[in-house]
Design a binder for these strands. Structure first.
Lengths: 238, 238
DNA sequence: GTACTTTCTTAGGATAATCTAACATAATTT
DNA sequence: AAATTATGTTAGATTATCCTAAGAAAGTAC
Protein backbone atom coordinates (compact mmCIF):
# COMPACT_ATOMS: atom_id res chain seq x y z
CA UNK A 1 0.00 0.00 0.00
CA UNK A 2 1.05 3.58 -0.40
CA UNK A 3 2.94 3.75 -3.60
CA UNK A 4 4.33 7.17 -3.07
CA UNK A 5 5.73 5.89 0.16
CA UNK A 6 7.27 3.07 -1.72
CA UNK A 7 9.33 5.73 -3.31
CA UNK A 8 9.95 7.72 -0.23
CA UNK A 9 10.43 4.97 2.30
CA UNK A 10 10.77 1.86 0.27
CA UNK A 11 13.30 2.67 -2.32
CA UNK A 12 14.83 5.41 -0.28
CA UNK A 13 15.79 4.26 3.11
CA UNK A 14 16.98 5.48 6.44
CA UNK A 15 20.31 6.12 4.87
CA UNK A 16 18.64 8.42 2.37
CA UNK A 17 19.80 6.05 -0.33
CA UNK A 18 17.74 4.02 -2.72
CA UNK A 19 17.68 0.29 -2.20
CA UNK A 20 19.93 -0.17 -5.17
CA UNK A 21 22.48 2.32 -3.98
CA UNK A 22 22.54 0.58 -0.63
CA UNK A 23 23.22 -2.66 -2.46
CA UNK A 24 26.16 -1.15 -4.26
CA UNK A 25 27.55 0.16 -1.01
CA UNK A 26 27.09 -3.12 0.78
CA UNK A 27 28.75 -5.00 -2.02
CA UNK A 28 31.71 -2.68 -2.11
CA UNK A 29 32.14 -3.11 1.60
CA UNK A 30 32.04 -6.87 1.33
CA UNK A 31 34.48 -7.00 -1.54
CA UNK A 32 36.83 -4.64 0.26
CA UNK A 33 37.09 -7.15 3.07
CA UNK A 34 37.88 -10.06 0.80
CA UNK A 35 40.05 -8.54 -1.88
CA UNK A 36 43.02 -6.22 -2.04
CA UNK A 37 41.22 -3.86 -4.38
CA UNK A 38 37.66 -3.45 -5.43
CA UNK A 39 37.02 -3.33 -9.16
CA UNK A 40 34.04 -2.48 -11.28
CA UNK A 41 34.02 -5.93 -12.76
CA UNK A 42 33.69 -7.63 -9.39
CA UNK A 43 30.87 -5.40 -8.28
CA UNK A 44 29.08 -6.04 -11.55
CA UNK A 45 29.46 -9.76 -11.14
CA UNK A 46 28.29 -9.81 -7.54
CA UNK A 47 25.25 -7.68 -8.23
CA UNK A 48 24.53 -9.43 -11.48
CA UNK A 49 24.51 -6.29 -13.59
CA UNK A 50 26.67 -5.08 -16.46
CA UNK A 51 29.69 -2.87 -15.92
CA UNK A 52 28.23 0.34 -17.28
CA UNK A 53 25.56 0.20 -14.63
CA UNK A 54 28.24 0.00 -12.01
CA UNK A 55 30.16 2.93 -13.44
CA UNK A 56 27.07 5.09 -13.30
CA UNK A 57 26.29 4.01 -9.76
CA UNK A 58 29.84 4.71 -8.65
CA UNK A 59 29.66 8.20 -10.07
CA UNK A 60 26.57 8.82 -8.05
CA UNK A 61 28.04 7.39 -4.87
CA UNK A 62 31.09 9.52 -5.40
CA UNK A 63 28.99 12.65 -5.72
CA UNK A 64 27.31 11.70 -2.47
CA UNK A 65 30.70 11.48 -0.82
CA UNK A 66 30.31 7.83 0.06
CA UNK A 67 33.19 6.46 -1.97
CA UNK A 68 36.41 7.79 -3.32
CA UNK A 69 37.14 6.78 -6.85
CA UNK A 70 38.75 8.12 -10.00
CA UNK A 71 38.09 7.07 -13.55
CA UNK A 72 39.74 3.72 -14.23
CA UNK A 73 40.82 3.58 -10.63
CA UNK A 74 39.89 1.40 -7.70
CA UNK A 75 36.99 1.98 -5.38
CA UNK A 76 37.23 2.76 -1.68
CA UNK A 77 34.57 3.59 0.83
CA UNK A 78 34.83 6.86 2.70
CA UNK A 79 34.16 6.81 6.44
CA UNK A 80 30.62 7.94 5.83
CA UNK A 81 30.16 5.22 3.20
CA UNK A 82 31.61 2.60 5.48
CA UNK A 83 29.23 3.64 8.21
CA UNK A 84 26.19 3.22 6.02
CA UNK A 85 27.47 -0.04 4.60
CA UNK A 86 27.92 -1.41 8.09
CA UNK A 87 24.41 -0.44 9.01
CA UNK A 88 23.01 -2.01 5.88
CA UNK A 89 25.02 -5.12 6.49
CA UNK A 90 23.89 -5.49 10.07
CA UNK A 91 20.30 -5.23 8.94
CA UNK A 92 21.02 -7.91 6.40
CA UNK A 93 22.57 -10.28 8.93
CA UNK A 94 19.75 -9.75 11.33
CA UNK A 95 17.25 -10.72 8.70
CA UNK A 96 19.25 -13.65 7.41
CA UNK A 97 19.58 -14.88 10.96
CA UNK A 98 15.85 -14.62 11.42
CA UNK A 99 15.04 -16.49 8.24
CA UNK A 100 17.51 -19.21 9.01
CA UNK A 101 17.16 -19.70 12.74
CA UNK A 102 13.60 -18.73 13.44
CA UNK A 103 11.76 -19.42 10.22
CA UNK A 104 14.16 -22.28 9.66
CA UNK A 105 14.59 -22.14 5.94
CA UNK A 106 17.88 -23.12 4.35
CA UNK A 107 20.85 -20.81 4.75
CA UNK A 108 20.99 -20.03 1.06
CA UNK A 109 17.34 -19.17 0.83
CA UNK A 110 17.52 -17.24 4.09
CA UNK A 111 20.23 -15.10 2.62
CA UNK A 112 18.38 -14.52 -0.58
CA UNK A 113 15.19 -13.57 1.22
CA UNK A 114 17.13 -11.19 3.42
CA UNK A 115 18.50 -9.49 0.32
CA UNK A 116 15.07 -8.89 -1.02
CA UNK A 117 13.54 -7.61 2.17
CA UNK A 118 16.39 -5.76 3.80
CA UNK A 119 15.89 -2.35 2.27
CA UNK A 120 12.32 -2.13 3.29
CA UNK A 121 12.54 -2.72 6.98
CA UNK A 122 12.47 0.15 9.46
CA UNK A 123 15.15 0.42 12.13
CA UNK A 124 12.50 -0.29 14.71
CA UNK A 125 11.37 -3.54 13.10
CA UNK A 126 14.98 -4.45 12.76
CA UNK A 127 15.60 -4.02 16.46
CA UNK A 128 12.51 -6.05 17.29
CA UNK A 129 13.57 -8.75 14.91
CA UNK A 130 16.90 -8.90 16.65
CA UNK A 131 15.20 -9.22 20.01
CA UNK A 132 13.18 -12.12 18.67
CA UNK A 133 16.18 -13.89 17.22
CA UNK A 134 18.09 -13.39 20.45
CA UNK A 135 15.23 -14.80 22.43
CA UNK A 136 14.97 -17.87 20.27
CA UNK A 137 18.71 -18.40 20.15
CA UNK A 138 19.38 -17.74 23.81
CA UNK A 139 20.11 -20.88 25.76
CA UNK A 140 18.72 -19.43 28.98
CA UNK A 141 15.21 -19.81 27.80
CA UNK A 142 15.47 -23.44 26.98
CA UNK A 143 12.81 -25.94 27.68
CA UNK A 144 10.14 -27.71 25.82
CA UNK A 145 8.64 -24.72 24.04
CA UNK A 146 11.68 -24.41 21.86
CA UNK A 147 11.45 -28.00 20.71
CA UNK A 148 7.78 -27.39 20.12
CA UNK A 149 8.52 -24.31 18.09
CA UNK A 150 11.12 -26.01 15.96
CA UNK A 151 8.89 -29.02 15.46
CA UNK A 152 6.14 -26.72 14.33
CA UNK A 153 8.43 -24.70 12.09
CA UNK A 154 9.86 -27.81 10.49
CA UNK A 155 6.49 -29.25 9.62
CA UNK A 156 5.43 -29.06 5.97
CA UNK A 157 2.36 -29.95 4.05
CA UNK A 158 3.03 -32.79 1.70
CA UNK A 159 2.71 -30.51 -1.29
CA UNK A 160 5.44 -28.21 -0.02
CA UNK A 161 8.10 -30.84 -0.55
CA UNK A 162 10.42 -30.70 -3.52
CA UNK A 163 10.94 -33.59 -5.88
CA UNK A 164 13.10 -36.18 -4.21
CA UNK A 165 12.38 -35.07 -0.63
CA UNK A 166 11.48 -37.68 1.93
CA UNK A 167 9.42 -37.08 5.03
CA UNK A 168 7.52 -38.75 7.84
CA UNK A 169 3.79 -38.26 8.21
CA UNK A 170 2.88 -36.25 11.29
CA UNK A 171 -0.83 -35.80 10.93
CA UNK A 172 -3.66 -36.14 8.44
CA UNK A 173 -6.34 -33.48 8.52
CA UNK A 174 -8.58 -34.99 5.88
CA UNK A 175 -12.17 -35.84 6.77
CA UNK A 176 -14.67 -38.43 5.70
CA UNK A 177 -14.25 -40.12 2.33
CA UNK A 178 -10.85 -38.60 1.65
CA UNK A 179 -9.48 -39.66 4.99
CA UNK A 180 -10.69 -43.17 4.40
CA UNK A 181 -9.11 -43.28 0.98
CA UNK A 182 -5.79 -41.95 2.25
CA UNK A 183 -5.73 -44.52 5.03
CA UNK A 184 -6.41 -47.25 2.54
CA UNK A 185 -3.51 -46.07 0.43
CA UNK A 186 -1.28 -46.43 3.47
CA UNK A 187 -1.03 -42.84 4.65
CA UNK A 188 -0.88 -42.79 8.40
CA UNK A 189 1.10 -41.14 11.14
CA UNK A 190 4.70 -42.27 11.30
CA UNK A 191 4.80 -43.65 7.78
CA UNK A 192 7.57 -42.43 5.48
CA UNK A 193 6.78 -40.88 2.10
CA UNK A 194 8.91 -39.67 -0.77
CA UNK A 195 7.85 -37.04 -3.23
CA UNK A 196 8.63 -38.45 -6.62
CA UNK A 197 7.47 -35.86 -9.06
CA UNK A 198 5.10 -33.01 -9.79
CA UNK A 199 3.04 -32.95 -12.95
CA UNK A 200 3.80 -30.02 -15.25
CA UNK A 201 1.34 -27.64 -13.60
CA UNK A 202 2.26 -28.90 -10.15
CA UNK A 203 -1.10 -30.52 -9.82
CA UNK A 204 -1.21 -34.12 -9.47
CA UNK A 205 1.87 -35.03 -7.49
CA UNK A 206 3.34 -38.48 -7.34
CA UNK A 207 4.31 -39.85 -3.97
CA UNK A 208 5.93 -43.08 -2.99
CA UNK A 209 4.62 -44.75 0.13
CA UNK A 210 5.42 -48.31 1.18
CA UNK A 211 6.96 -49.00 -2.20
CA UNK A 212 3.84 -47.92 -4.04
CA UNK A 213 3.63 -44.88 -6.25
CA UNK A 214 0.50 -42.93 -5.58
CA UNK A 215 -0.86 -39.90 -7.38
CA UNK A 216 -2.49 -37.19 -5.24
CA UNK A 217 -4.14 -33.91 -6.10
CA UNK A 218 -2.70 -30.85 -4.41
CA UNK A 219 -5.83 -30.35 -2.35
CA UNK A 220 -5.50 -33.86 -1.08
CA UNK A 221 -1.80 -33.51 -0.35
CA UNK A 222 -2.54 -30.35 1.58
CA UNK A 223 -4.31 -32.33 4.24
CA UNK A 224 -1.20 -34.33 5.00
CA UNK A 225 1.31 -32.78 7.37
CA UNK A 226 4.80 -34.20 7.32
CA UNK A 227 8.20 -33.72 8.86
CA UNK A 228 10.98 -33.80 6.27
CA UNK A 229 13.82 -36.20 6.73
CA UNK A 230 17.20 -34.61 6.18
CA UNK A 231 18.86 -36.15 3.20
CA UNK A 232 22.44 -37.18 3.77
CA UNK A 233 23.79 -35.27 0.84
CA UNK A 234 27.26 -36.76 1.10
CA UNK A 235 25.76 -40.16 0.48
CA UNK A 236 24.15 -39.10 -2.72
CA UNK A 237 26.99 -40.20 -4.98
CA UNK A 238 27.59 -43.64 -3.56
CA UNK B 1 22.32 -8.06 -3.09
CA UNK B 2 21.63 -9.05 -6.67
CA UNK B 3 20.22 -6.00 -8.33
CA UNK B 4 19.09 -7.73 -11.43
CA UNK B 5 17.14 -10.09 -9.24
CA UNK B 6 15.60 -7.09 -7.61
CA UNK B 7 14.06 -6.53 -10.95
CA UNK B 8 13.23 -10.12 -11.66
CA UNK B 9 12.19 -11.29 -8.23
CA UNK B 10 11.85 -8.16 -6.20
CA UNK B 11 9.76 -5.90 -8.31
CA UNK B 12 8.24 -8.74 -10.19
CA UNK B 13 6.70 -11.26 -7.92
CA UNK B 14 5.14 -14.67 -7.91
CA UNK B 15 2.17 -13.15 -9.62
CA UNK B 16 4.41 -11.93 -12.42
CA UNK B 17 3.42 -8.41 -11.48
CA UNK B 18 5.58 -5.59 -10.26
CA UNK B 19 5.21 -4.58 -6.66
CA UNK B 20 3.35 -1.48 -7.70
CA UNK B 21 0.92 -3.34 -9.87
CA UNK B 22 0.23 -5.69 -7.00
CA UNK B 23 -0.50 -2.69 -4.86
CA UNK B 24 -3.02 -1.39 -7.34
CA UNK B 25 -4.69 -4.76 -7.49
CA UNK B 26 -4.80 -5.12 -3.74
CA UNK B 27 -6.25 -1.67 -3.34
CA UNK B 28 -8.92 -2.24 -5.93
CA UNK B 29 -9.91 -5.44 -4.16
CA UNK B 30 -10.13 -3.70 -0.80
CA UNK B 31 -12.15 -0.81 -2.14
CA UNK B 32 -14.47 -3.18 -3.94
CA UNK B 33 -15.36 -4.74 -0.62
CA UNK B 34 -16.11 -1.45 1.06
CA UNK B 35 -17.72 0.59 -1.66
CA UNK B 36 -20.40 0.05 -4.26
CA UNK B 37 -18.08 1.11 -7.05
CA UNK B 38 -14.37 1.58 -7.32
CA UNK B 39 -13.23 4.91 -8.75
CA UNK B 40 -9.94 6.26 -9.91
CA UNK B 41 -10.04 8.96 -7.31
CA UNK B 42 -10.34 6.52 -4.42
CA UNK B 43 -7.51 4.38 -5.64
CA UNK B 44 -5.35 7.46 -6.04
CA UNK B 45 -6.14 8.59 -2.54
CA UNK B 46 -5.49 5.23 -0.97
CA UNK B 47 -2.20 4.75 -2.74
CA UNK B 48 -1.20 8.35 -2.28
CA UNK B 49 -0.60 9.04 -5.95
CA UNK B 50 -2.20 11.37 -8.45
CA UNK B 51 -5.04 10.27 -10.69
CA UNK B 52 -3.10 10.10 -13.95
CA UNK B 53 -0.83 7.51 -12.43
CA UNK B 54 -3.85 5.42 -11.62
CA UNK B 55 -5.25 5.74 -15.13
CA UNK B 56 -2.02 4.50 -16.59
CA UNK B 57 -1.85 1.62 -14.14
CA UNK B 58 -5.44 0.63 -14.88
CA UNK B 59 -4.73 0.54 -18.58
CA UNK B 60 -1.89 -1.82 -17.93
CA UNK B 61 -3.92 -4.04 -15.63
CA UNK B 62 -6.65 -4.15 -18.22
CA UNK B 63 -4.21 -5.27 -20.88
CA UNK B 64 -3.11 -8.01 -18.53
CA UNK B 65 -6.70 -9.15 -18.20
CA UNK B 66 -6.78 -8.52 -14.47
CA UNK B 67 -9.48 -5.88 -14.41
CA UNK B 68 -12.35 -4.89 -16.61
CA UNK B 69 -12.66 -1.19 -17.12
CA UNK B 70 -13.70 1.29 -19.76
CA UNK B 71 -12.69 4.91 -20.08
CA UNK B 72 -14.55 7.01 -17.53
CA UNK B 73 -16.12 3.86 -16.16
CA UNK B 74 -15.78 1.96 -12.93
CA UNK B 75 -13.22 -0.66 -12.17
CA UNK B 76 -13.86 -4.32 -11.50
CA UNK B 77 -11.52 -7.19 -10.93
CA UNK B 78 -11.70 -10.17 -13.22
CA UNK B 79 -11.56 -13.61 -11.64
CA UNK B 80 -7.88 -13.81 -12.39
CA UNK B 81 -7.33 -10.38 -10.85
CA UNK B 82 -9.33 -11.27 -7.80
CA UNK B 83 -7.27 -14.39 -7.33
CA UNK B 84 -4.02 -12.49 -7.35
CA UNK B 85 -5.41 -9.76 -5.12
CA UNK B 86 -6.48 -12.36 -2.59
CA UNK B 87 -3.05 -13.89 -2.59
CA UNK B 88 -1.38 -10.54 -2.17
CA UNK B 89 -3.76 -9.64 0.59
CA UNK B 90 -3.19 -12.84 2.50
CA UNK B 91 0.53 -12.23 2.36
CA UNK B 92 -0.08 -8.76 3.68
CA UNK B 93 -2.20 -9.93 6.59
CA UNK B 94 0.27 -12.59 7.49
CA UNK B 95 3.03 -10.02 7.68
CA UNK B 96 0.96 -7.45 9.52
CA UNK B 97 0.00 -10.13 12.01
CA UNK B 98 3.62 -11.01 12.50
CA UNK B 99 4.72 -7.44 13.05
CA UNK B 100 1.91 -6.77 15.45
CA UNK B 101 1.65 -9.98 17.43
CA UNK B 102 5.14 -11.35 17.35
CA UNK B 103 7.38 -8.33 16.96
CA UNK B 104 4.81 -6.41 18.97
CA UNK B 105 4.94 -3.05 17.30
CA UNK B 106 1.83 -0.91 17.08
CA UNK B 107 -0.93 -1.96 14.72
CA UNK B 108 -0.46 1.10 12.52
CA UNK B 109 3.25 0.60 12.18
CA UNK B 110 2.79 -3.13 11.72
CA UNK B 111 0.55 -2.45 8.78
CA UNK B 112 2.89 0.05 7.25
CA UNK B 113 5.86 -2.28 7.60
CA UNK B 114 3.86 -5.07 6.03
CA UNK B 115 3.12 -2.82 3.06
CA UNK B 116 6.76 -2.17 2.49
CA UNK B 117 7.93 -5.74 2.81
CA UNK B 118 5.07 -7.71 1.35
CA UNK B 119 6.11 -7.77 -2.26
CA UNK B 120 9.50 -9.11 -1.55
CA UNK B 121 8.67 -12.20 0.41
CA UNK B 122 8.63 -15.64 -1.19
CA UNK B 123 5.64 -17.92 -0.75
CA UNK B 124 7.79 -20.20 1.31
CA UNK B 125 8.82 -17.52 3.77
CA UNK B 126 5.25 -16.50 3.94
CA UNK B 127 4.14 -19.95 4.94
CA UNK B 128 6.86 -20.18 7.55
CA UNK B 129 5.91 -16.80 8.92
CA UNK B 130 2.37 -18.00 9.24
CA UNK B 131 3.51 -21.06 11.13
CA UNK B 132 5.44 -18.85 13.50
CA UNK B 133 2.52 -16.52 14.10
CA UNK B 134 0.22 -19.47 14.64
CA UNK B 135 2.60 -20.94 17.13
CA UNK B 136 2.87 -17.73 19.10
CA UNK B 137 -0.85 -17.05 18.96
CA UNK B 138 -1.98 -20.57 19.74
CA UNK B 139 -3.29 -20.95 23.23
CA UNK B 140 -2.26 -24.60 23.46
CA UNK B 141 1.33 -23.68 23.86
CA UNK B 142 0.83 -21.38 26.73
CA UNK B 143 3.09 -21.23 29.68
CA UNK B 144 5.87 -19.10 30.92
CA UNK B 145 7.89 -18.88 27.72
CA UNK B 146 5.24 -16.76 26.13
CA UNK B 147 5.31 -14.24 28.94
CA UNK B 148 9.07 -14.30 28.72
CA UNK B 149 8.93 -13.69 24.99
CA UNK B 150 6.52 -10.81 25.30
CA UNK B 151 8.49 -9.30 28.14
CA UNK B 152 11.59 -9.49 26.03
CA UNK B 153 9.86 -8.10 22.96
CA UNK B 154 8.36 -5.24 24.90
CA UNK B 155 11.67 -4.11 26.35
CA UNK B 156 13.22 -1.01 24.84
CA UNK B 157 16.41 0.85 25.31
CA UNK B 158 15.77 4.23 26.82
CA UNK B 159 16.75 5.94 23.60
CA UNK B 160 14.11 4.03 21.63
CA UNK B 161 11.30 5.85 23.39
CA UNK B 162 9.45 8.67 21.70
CA UNK B 163 8.96 12.06 23.24
CA UNK B 164 6.33 11.83 25.96
CA UNK B 165 6.67 8.07 26.50
CA UNK B 166 6.94 6.80 30.03
CA UNK B 167 8.61 3.57 31.08
CA UNK B 168 9.90 1.59 34.01
CA UNK B 169 13.57 0.75 34.27
CA UNK B 170 14.26 -2.96 33.86
CA UNK B 171 18.01 -3.14 33.84
CA UNK B 172 21.10 -0.99 33.55
CA UNK B 173 24.00 -2.41 31.61
CA UNK B 174 26.41 0.45 32.22
CA UNK B 175 29.73 -0.29 33.87
CA UNK B 176 32.10 1.58 36.16
CA UNK B 177 31.96 5.35 36.23
CA UNK B 178 28.87 5.62 34.07
CA UNK B 179 26.95 3.15 36.19
CA UNK B 180 27.89 5.07 39.30
CA UNK B 181 26.78 8.33 37.78
CA UNK B 182 23.47 6.89 36.60
CA UNK B 183 22.78 5.46 40.02
CA UNK B 184 23.52 8.83 41.57
CA UNK B 185 21.06 10.45 39.23
CA UNK B 186 18.42 8.07 40.46
CA UNK B 187 18.36 5.51 37.66
CA UNK B 188 17.70 2.11 39.13
CA UNK B 189 15.53 -0.90 38.49
CA UNK B 190 11.86 -0.26 39.03
CA UNK B 191 12.09 3.51 38.79
CA UNK B 192 9.81 5.29 36.35
CA UNK B 193 11.21 7.62 33.70
CA UNK B 194 9.63 9.86 31.12
CA UNK B 195 11.26 10.89 27.89
CA UNK B 196 10.81 14.61 27.66
CA UNK B 197 12.57 15.61 24.50
CA UNK B 198 15.30 14.86 22.00
CA UNK B 199 17.77 17.53 20.96
CA UNK B 200 17.64 18.42 17.26
CA UNK B 201 20.08 15.74 16.18
CA UNK B 202 18.58 13.24 18.59
CA UNK B 203 21.66 13.34 20.67
CA UNK B 204 21.37 14.54 24.09
CA UNK B 205 17.97 13.39 25.24
CA UNK B 206 16.13 14.83 28.18
CA UNK B 207 14.58 12.45 30.66
CA UNK B 208 12.52 13.07 33.73
CA UNK B 209 13.22 10.85 36.70
CA UNK B 210 11.91 11.47 40.21
CA UNK B 211 10.77 14.94 39.23
CA UNK B 212 14.22 15.88 37.96
CA UNK B 213 15.04 16.57 34.34
CA UNK B 214 18.25 14.88 33.35
CA UNK B 215 20.14 15.11 30.08
CA UNK B 216 21.72 11.92 28.75
CA UNK B 217 23.79 11.16 25.71
CA UNK B 218 22.47 8.46 23.42
CA UNK B 219 25.31 6.12 24.27
CA UNK B 220 24.46 6.49 27.92
CA UNK B 221 20.76 5.99 27.35
CA UNK B 222 21.52 2.85 25.38
CA UNK B 223 22.71 1.14 28.53
CA UNK B 224 19.34 1.57 30.17
CA UNK B 225 16.69 -1.04 29.37
CA UNK B 226 13.12 -0.09 30.11
CA UNK B 227 9.60 -1.41 29.80
CA UNK B 228 7.22 1.19 28.39
CA UNK B 229 4.11 2.01 30.34
CA UNK B 230 0.97 2.10 28.21
CA UNK B 231 -0.47 5.56 28.18
CA UNK B 232 -4.19 5.65 28.85
CA UNK B 233 -5.05 7.61 25.78
CA UNK B 234 -8.69 8.05 26.67
CA UNK B 235 -7.64 9.88 29.80
CA UNK B 236 -5.58 12.38 27.91
CA UNK B 237 -8.32 14.98 27.57
CA UNK B 238 -9.59 14.99 31.09
C1' DG C 1 57.79 -1.33 -27.54
C1' DT C 2 54.16 -2.91 -30.40
C1' DA C 3 50.17 -5.75 -30.33
C1' DC C 4 46.69 -8.14 -27.95
C1' DT C 5 43.48 -8.63 -24.03
C1' DT C 6 41.08 -7.09 -20.27
C1' DT C 7 38.82 -3.65 -17.91
C1' DC C 8 36.32 0.51 -17.79
C1' DT C 9 33.76 4.49 -19.60
C1' DT C 10 30.77 7.09 -22.65
C1' DA C 11 26.86 7.56 -25.49
C1' DG C 12 22.44 6.59 -26.52
C1' DG C 13 18.24 4.07 -25.84
C1' DA C 14 14.64 1.35 -23.10
C1' DT C 15 11.37 0.70 -19.24
C1' DA C 16 8.53 1.48 -15.29
C1' DA C 17 7.13 4.39 -12.47
C1' DT C 18 6.10 9.24 -11.13
C1' DC C 19 4.36 14.13 -11.88
C1' DT C 20 1.94 18.68 -13.81
C1' DA C 21 -0.92 21.02 -17.02
C1' DA C 22 -4.42 20.99 -20.08
C1' DC C 23 -8.36 18.96 -21.89
C1' DA C 24 -12.67 15.78 -21.86
C1' DT C 25 -16.51 13.68 -19.88
C1' DA C 26 -19.97 12.96 -16.32
C1' DA C 27 -22.68 14.55 -12.52
C1' DT C 28 -24.95 18.13 -10.06
C1' DT C 29 -27.03 22.41 -9.39
C1' DT C 30 -29.79 26.10 -10.57
C1' DA D 1 -31.01 22.99 -20.46
C1' DA D 2 -27.10 25.69 -19.31
C1' DA D 3 -23.57 26.43 -16.06
C1' DT D 4 -20.68 24.71 -12.64
C1' DT D 5 -18.15 21.21 -10.26
C1' DA D 6 -16.16 16.77 -9.89
C1' DT D 7 -13.88 13.22 -11.93
C1' DG D 8 -10.96 11.12 -15.40
C1' DT D 9 -7.73 11.13 -19.43
C1' DT D 10 -4.02 12.53 -22.45
C1' DA D 11 0.31 14.55 -23.43
C1' DG D 12 4.74 15.48 -22.26
C1' DA D 13 8.46 15.78 -18.80
C1' DT D 14 11.23 13.63 -15.04
C1' DT D 15 13.75 10.15 -12.44
C1' DA D 16 16.14 6.00 -11.47
C1' DT D 17 17.33 2.12 -13.09
C1' DC D 18 18.86 -0.98 -16.67
C1' DC D 19 20.97 -2.31 -21.24
C1' DT D 20 24.06 -2.62 -25.79
C1' DA D 21 27.59 -0.97 -28.71
C1' DA D 22 31.59 1.36 -29.38
C1' DG D 23 35.65 3.50 -27.93
C1' DA D 24 39.48 4.53 -24.34
C1' DA D 25 42.81 3.25 -20.87
C1' DA D 26 45.56 -0.05 -18.50
C1' DG D 27 47.88 -4.38 -18.20
C1' DT D 28 50.24 -8.42 -20.43
C1' DA D 29 52.85 -10.94 -23.77
C1' DC D 30 56.13 -11.54 -26.90
Amino acid sequence: MKLKDAREDGFFNNSGLSAHMEDYLETISMLAQKKRVVRVKDIAKKLNVKMPSVTVALQKLKELGLISYEKYGFVELTDEGEKIAKRVYSRHSCLADFFENVLRISKVEADSEACKVEHHLSPQSCRQLKRLVDFVNSSETDGKWKDDLFAKMDERQLCELKEGDRAVIVRIDAQGELKKRLLELGFKKGEQVELIRYAPLEDPLQVKIKRYNVSLRIDEAKTITVMPVKKLESNANR
